[in-house]
Design a protein around this nucleic acid. Structure first.
Lengths: 131, 131
DNA sequence: TCTACACTCTGTAGCAACTACAGGGTCAAG
DNA sequence: CTTGACCCTGTAGTTGCTACAGAGTGTAGA
C-alpha cells in the first residue's frame, strides 16, 4: 500500500502520515525501489487506532501510551482505563468552562441595543473603565 | 508605569505584553532613558480590554477587530454584535462536539471489565479490527 | 561604596498537531 | 513522449503564548 492509499483509507492527510512517522508514532515502513513507502496491514491497523483515538480527543502523547499498552496483551487493563478517565475529566472541565463562557457571552450579546459603538454594551463590558 | 506593573495590573505575563506589542495589538509605549517601556493609562485600558476579550475566548484576530471597532465611536454597533455572535456560535459548536465525545468516551470506559489488555474493551473499541 | 537582587532589554527557540509549500523524482495512460 | 497524478525530502507557517540566554539597570541594605 502506498502512502496515498493508506491516507485515504484512514481519512488522514499524506503529510500527517509522514508526520506520525517522524515523531515515532508510526513505524517506518519498507520502501519500494523508487523509495516510495510501502505499508502493510499492520500499519493500517495502527494508523486506524491512532486516528480513532485522536477523534476521541486523546493527545498524541496519550495515544503513544495507549499504543504501548495495547502491545502488552497480558498486562492489566487498568492503565488504559486510567488514561481514558483522565481524558474524560479533562473534557468535563472544558465543557464546564465553555458553558460558563457561553452564558456570559450570551448575556453580553443580549444587552446589545444596536446603536452606535459609543453606546455599545458589548464594548462597554470589555472595557469596564469606559475606555 | 513599567512593564512589570502593567503586567501584574492586568494579570498578564511580561512576555505576553511584549508579544502583544510585537504583533501590533498594543501600541509601542515611550521609553525611559534606560530604554524601559513607560506605559500610561491608555495602555492599561487597552490591555485590560484585550485580556477581558481573551478571557471570553475571542481570538487575537477578533480582538484586533473589536479594538478597531471600539475606536470608531460613531459607527454602528452591529459589527461588534456580529463578531460576538460568530464567536458564540463557535462555542456552541465546541460544546456540542465535546458533549458527544464525552458520551462516547463514557460509554467506552463503562465497558471496561478491568481484565487484561487482551480483553480490554477500550483498546478493542480503538482498534475495531482486533489489532 | 559595594554588592546583591529584582527588574528590564533584545532575540531566538520551543510547545501541540498538524498543514503547506518548494523543488525535485517516478509511474501509468493515452 | 508527454501529461498528470502521485511520491520524496526539508523547511516554514499556523495560534498564543512561554522560556530561555545574555546583557544592562535600578535600588536597598551592610
Amino acid at each position: 500500500m502506498k502512502i496515498g492509499e493508506l491516507a485515504s483509507a484512514t481519512a488522514t492527510k499524506v503529510e500527517t502520515v509522514r508526520y506520525y512517522e517522524k515523531i515515532g508514532l508510526l513505524p517506518p515502513p519498507s520502501r519500494t525501489s523508487a523509495n516510495y513507502r510501502a505499508y502493510g496491514n499492520d500499519h493500517l491497523a495502527r494508523l486506524s487506532f491512532i486516528r480513532r483515538a485522536r477523534d476521541l480527543g486523546f493527545t498524541l502523547e496519550a495515544v503513544r501510551e495507549l499504543l504501548t499498552l495495547s502491545d502488552d496483551k497480558a498486562q492489566s487493563c487498568d492503565a488504559v482505563d486510567g488514561i481514558a478517565r483522565v481524558h474524560l475529566a479533562e473534557i468535563d472541565r472544558k465543557v464546564t468552562d465553555l458553558t460558563a463562557l457561553r452564558g456570559e457571552l450570551d448575556r453580553i450579546i443580549g444587552s446589545c441595543r444596536h446603536g452606535t459603538v459609543a453606546e455599545c454594551k458589548i464594548i462597554e463590558t470589555l472595557a469596564p473603565r469606559g475606555n
